[in-house]
Design a binder for these strands. Structure first.
Length: 201
DNA sequence: TGCCAGGCCCTCTTTAGGGCCTT
């Protein structure tokens, strides 16, 4: 089964266009539902972290003061991810920070597509109370990964969610190997045609 | 104590509007 890189950013806010920067990144390499390797680092965003974000994530100005700068960590993360497909929960959010930081560094790969576990979960589990990562983890009884809203815990949980989605799709549509290409296609496919997408492959 | 944006999806829709989700 293809190895994918599941990414999660903690940041100073919602938008790099407003000057927000990452404060932490975690990447897990996932294959067949097993975590093969992990990368995690706090980083110094060069700006203050709003109080409400610290309340949410537990990441404070004091914690990132001695951390390496964003540029250093992003270069390490890019090397760790390599050419593997990238997955995230609400991938549009992580993708825009990934792109923003790669462009700052003039690194290639800022146009890479991300597969999104939230969009997949909306289609596969429409009956879930909502499609927040924490709710899905609880609702599906996924393994506990630690404190929510920290990068490694959320990346691991998104990895477990991805594996569960693959397993349920395989069972529902009698497909043995649900690879990343199918997930990527599902990302752009209306829920009503999900069955046709997988049965058609 | 900075409460910001944007892509996706649904519907009381499509020449639009609003909710969800991420920090």
């Amino acid at each position: 089964m293809e190895t994918v890189a599941v990414i999660d950013f903690e940041t100073t806010g919602l938008s790099p266009d407003w000057g927000d920067r990452p404060t932490e990144i975690a990447v897990v390499l996932l294959s067949g539902g097993k975590i093969l390797d992990r990368f995690q680092s706090l980083m110094n965003p060069g700006r203050r972290i709003p109080y409400y974000v610290t309340q949410l994530t537990g990441i404070s100005d004091e914690m990132v003061a001695s951390a390496p700068p964003v540029e250093t960590v992003i270069r390490q993360a890019v090397r760790f991810v390599g050419n593997r497909p990238i997955v995230a929960h609400n991938a549009a959010f992580d993708r825009k920070f990934w792109r923003s930081e790669l462009r700052r560094l003039s690194l290639p790969g800022d146009d890479r597509s991300f597969a999104c576990t939230m969009l997949l979960a909306r289609r596969v589990y429409p009956e879930s109370p909502n499609h927040k990562l924490g709710t899905l983890a609880q609702w599906l009884h996924l393994p506990s990964a630690g404190r929510a809203h920290r990068a490694m815990a959320d990346a691991e949980t998104a990895g477990y969610l991805l594996h569960r989605i693959r397993t349920d799709i395989s069972r529902t549509y009698k497909i043995r190997n649900v690879d990343h290409e199918l997930l990527a296609r599902a990302q752009c496919t209306p829920r009503s045609s999900l069955g046709r997408v997988f049965c058609g492959c």
